[in-house]
Design a protein around this nucleic acid. Structure first.
Length: 299
DNA sequence: AAAGAAGTCAACCGCAATGTC
DNA sequence: TGACATTGCGGTTGACTTCTT
């Protein structure tokens, strides 16, 4: 009973891939396409686990992988997306063409996270170097109750067409009939809506790589209901600057002593979380919109 | 120059979501 | 509807490289 292992472990190669293995895998996928990872090693003649093949392809061999350093624009986008999505690296990577979730995860853990610790040193960050070395691979403490906007909505209620993405104050709101997302990707129901929005999705609004609606009329923003409030509102905030304010606020409170750097990094997350949890009524929400730097859109 | 510390990143692991029968 | 298969994801590890003393 129970789950069978993804592959038999006996006789399989592990560790770094050789150039020959890369070539075999690349050639096989070029001819047969991606998928069927479980059977791929046998068919391709590789002594590798299917999962390993998939990972190697996705993170290294894919032709559209972008090599080289993360640019400042990309870093800024990663920060903003992480602010919004938390450690959902695949979603973040989806906004950075050519970058993989593994690459972004590594970059975050080795660069960005460290920068924030240095920029906002906390009492808990003054650990001895020896402790840091032991904990260097430890992930940030789970952000229990963090307010990362979970976009896992149950239904799509409205669609926004935003003529000028940069202008957050006078965007035109067109309310259309909800419609399922067709084509690739999961459906809206019971799925992660950010991932579900194949192609255009709410995050387009903060991506420097986006195609504007002016250029592509099909680039509309699907906005998911969060107890009458909408993700697009939150997306208009400058999360990075909010973060700085939030850090200061957190340091003045005694509770911050037990906070990890990533706790402090979570800007107004608790407020945003309550949006999705329905803990605020309309008047609460309206009064808080200046704090969040968002605009109240009356129904 | 050598040794240890620290940083980087590819790869692995386990789990959950989803698909299929 | 449940069991199993498949896929995808995030966390973690460990080998290798670079830096510091």
């Amino acid at each position: 009973m129970g789950r069978s292992p993804c592959c038999a472990k006996e006789g399989l190669n592990r560790g770094a891939w050789t150039a020959m293995e890369d070539k075999i895998l690349t050639e096989y996928i070029r001819v047969n396409g991606e998928g069927k990872w479980r059977n791929l090693p046998k068919r391709a003649g590789l002594k590798r686990c299917g999962k390993s093949c998939r990972l190697r392809w996705l993170n290294y061999l894919r032709p559209d992988i972008k090599r080289g350093n993360i640019t400042n624009d990309e870093e800024d986008l990663i920060i903003r997306l992480h602010k919004l999505l938390g450690n959902r690296w695949s979603l973040i990577a989806g906004r950075l063409p050519g970058r993989t979730d593994n690459e972004i995860k590594n970059y975050w853990n080795t660069n960005i996270g460290k920068k924030f610790v240095q920029a906002h040193p906390s009492p808990t960050s003054n650990r001895k170097a020896s402790n840091q070395s032991k904990e260097k691979s430890q992930p940030p403490a789970p952000r229990i109750g963090s307010g990362v906007v979970r976009t896992k909505a149950s239904r799509c209620t409205k669609v926004f067409i935003r003529p000028e993405p940069q202008n957050s104050t006078d965007h035109q709101q067109l309310i259309l009939e909800p419609k399922p997302v067709l084509g690739e990707g999961p459906t809206i129901h019971g799925s992660d809506c950010v991932g579900a929005a194949a192609g255009p999705d709410p995050l387009d609004d903060i991506s420097p790589f986006m195609i504007s609606a002016k250029d592509d009329p099909s680039d509309f923003i699907v906005d998911f209901e969060m107890d009458d409030k909408f993700l697009s509102d939150l997306l208009n905030t400058d999360f990075t600057s909010l973060c700085d304010e939030d850090v200061e606020t957190n340091y003045t409170s005694s509770s911050s002593l037990n906070s990890s750097p990533t706790d402090l990094f979570s800007t107004h997350d608790s407020v945003k979380a309550r949006f999705s949890e329905g803990m605020f009524n309309d008047s609460d929400l309206q009064s808080m919109t200046p704090l969040l730097g968002i605009e109240w859109l009356p129904e």
